[in-house]
Design a binder for these strands. Structure first.
Length: 508
RNA sequence: GGCCCGUUCGUCUAGGGGUUAGGACGCAAGGUUUUCAUCCUUGUAACAGGGGUUCGAAUCCCCUACGGGCUACCA
């Protein structure tokens, strides 16, 4: 049995979309589950669309997700280079091989002539408006021109492309691991350009050549490639590599949360969620797109939610570490239909991870955020705050946002809440309480809790009469965690100060 | 337009001839709580439509509808 080898082959034309990350993830999971290799290959055959920084962005994104490749650019490997622009010279010989075996041909048509051909067919309704086994007979190519003319044109340096010569009447059948048998008639197929006039191959040629040379066993890619899969089958056949042809698996698409269609950057902007793993600043427009990392997502949560979009384990487990995903993953549990992305559930996933995280990690993270904000706080204290607050929020960043009262005393008091709960006698009661608290030796949550309840009992005061006012004094609003816990973290001095200040300044 | 792919609660999905069609997110109600949130309990809600095949169809087949993808010297 040959070793499984799969690849993720993005084009560096911009930031990696979360759908792309999912494709990479499924490739990775499949490879690791099978004990195989996962490689990264950069498909940069289109010089016009190259975007500086995109390649680094792709690699950083995958690293952030914990998706590590066994071979790739910079990493290297026995089948390198892993950047198609650096493999440029390889492709020409295969294109020539196809010409020589009569499986491909030269074409000299200008863009205008191509356009004219499409319009003509459209008008005549004589077939598909494409360069195919029928229309190629009326175009300028090595099928219609004499050998001398062709040689002459090439010698003169005229622009030409190399096109595949599709069979006229043949049914191409392929077995997709996700979709089953897919059949297409060759007369529906376009004689796709394999080799461009700029000396670069197109995706179709480069992808087949590289997958063959790199001994790829499974091609797992997005559904948008399904229509050209028969062409690729034909290419393997034409190159004499059919026996080594990889198995195909075409993944369903990630759809926008509302309405229909592919998830796009626009949807993220419109609905307020990131579409990219990492923040991206477009080098041309300077426009910034938000990323999951910057939005406060844990990479584990991001990977987890992505994995469950289109795949499920067949059990009721929803929370998976990357290792668990590897263990559980299989292509036959990948669905056939597109998945709408649900930003709400995405948050829920992060919440689950926030709950699981060791408190020390959260404390450390909070310390960083605090420092960036210029707030001075001990990490130990921040760790306690994290423990107290995390179940109420979805993100570490939010956690900090809702804990502001720990760092500065209330500047104002929630009016509506005060109106309802701050009574004539509240200040007096609170001041009485301060003397009890003042005498506490150990100012711990437990001791405070006890003291408050003893105080209430002894004075015949109900919790509803004391607590809301106390909360208002300490927090400034009617929200937040347990008051004893808050005071514990605040410390005796600060707690008492806040209570006294409220008692003095707040009128019923 | 042509070709290809798809269709189970609002969303992610399980189930693939006989199920009260299951779970999760969301939403709603109730409970707990000094408050908000969490949490717990309960509820809400789906087999696109029509024909077959079959004793029996969400499940198999066909058609229709709808949705999506592709249709470049882009990937």
């Amino acid at each position: 049995m040959t070793k499984v080898r799969v690849r993720f082959a993005p084009s560096p034309t911009g930031p990696l979309h979360m759908g792309g990350v999912r494709t990479a993830l499924y490739n990775y999971l499949f490879a690791k589950k099978q004990g195989g290799d996962f490689l990264l290959r950069i498909e940069d055959t289109d010089q016009n669309r190259y975007v500086p920084g995109a390649e680094d962005y792709i690699m950083e994104s995958l690293r952030w997700c914990g998706i590590h490749w066994d071979e790739g650019p910079e990493t290297g490997g026995p089948f390198g280079p892993y950047r198609q622009s650096e493999r440029k010279d390889l492709y020409r010989q295969y294109a020539m091989q196809l010409i020589e075996s009569g499986k491909a041909y030269y074409a000299f048509d200008t863009p205008e002539e191509l356009e004219a051909m499409r319009q003509r067919i459209e008008a005549e309704k004589s077939g598909n408006p494409q360069y195919d086994s029928r229309s190629r007979l009326s175009m300028k190519n090595s099928l219609t021109l004499s050998e001398e003319e062709v040689a002459q044109k090439i010698a003169r340096g005229e622009n030409y492309v190399i096109r595949i010569k599709n069979p006229e009447d043949e049914e191409i059948v392929l077995e997709d691991l996700i979709r089953g048998t897919v059949k297409v008639h060759s007369w529906q197929l376009d004689d796709k350009v394999l080799f461009k006039s700029d000396g670069m191959p197109t995706y179709h040629l480069a992808n087949v050549v590289d997958d063959y040379l790199m001994k790829i066993t499974h091609v797992i890619r997005g559904e948008e490639w399904l229509p050209s899969a028969p062409l690729h089958v034909l290419l393997y056949r034409s190159l004499g590599w059919e026996a080594q042809m990889p198995r195909f698996a075409h993944l369903p698409l990630l759809l926008k949360p509302d309405g229909n269609g592919k998830l796009s950057k626009r949807d993220g902007d419109r609905l307020g969620f990131p579409v990219f793993p990492l923040q991206w600043k477009d080098p041309k427009s300077g426009e910034t797109s938000s990323g999951y990392r910057e939005a406060g997502y844990f990479p584990e949560a991001f990977v987890n939610l992505l994995a469950l979009l289109g795949w499920n384990p067949g059990t009721e487990q929803e929370i998976f570490s990357l290792d668990e995903l590897v263990e559980a993953f299989s292509l036959d549990r990948v669905g056939k239909s597109g998945s709408k992305f649900d930003p709400e559930k995405a948050k829920w996933f992060n919440h689950q991870y926030l709950l699981q995280k060791p408190l020390q990690d959260l404390g450390r993270e909070l310390k960083e955020i605090a420092q960036a904000k210029g707030i001075d706080a001990r990490e130990e204290q921040l760790t306690s705050i994290a423990g107290l607050m995390r179940e109420r929020v979805n993100f570490t960043t939010e956690l900090f946002g809702q804990a502001g009262f720990f760092f500065s005393a209330p500047k104002e008091y929630d009016e509506a809440f005060a109106k309802k709960r701050w009574k004539e006698d509240t200040p007096a009661i609170l001041l009485d309480l301060t003397s009890v608290l003042e005498n506490l030796q150990a100012f711990t949550a437990e001791a405070i809790h006890k003291a408050i309840h003893t105080f209430m009992e002894e004075n015949g005061i109900g919790a509803g009469k004391l607590m809301p006012g106390l909360r208002l004094a300490l927090v400034g609003s009617g929200m937040g965690p347990d008051l004893s816990e808050i005071m514990d973290i605040l410390g005796k001095q600060e707690s008492l100060q806040r209570i006294r200040r409220a008692a003095e300044t707040l009128k019923a």
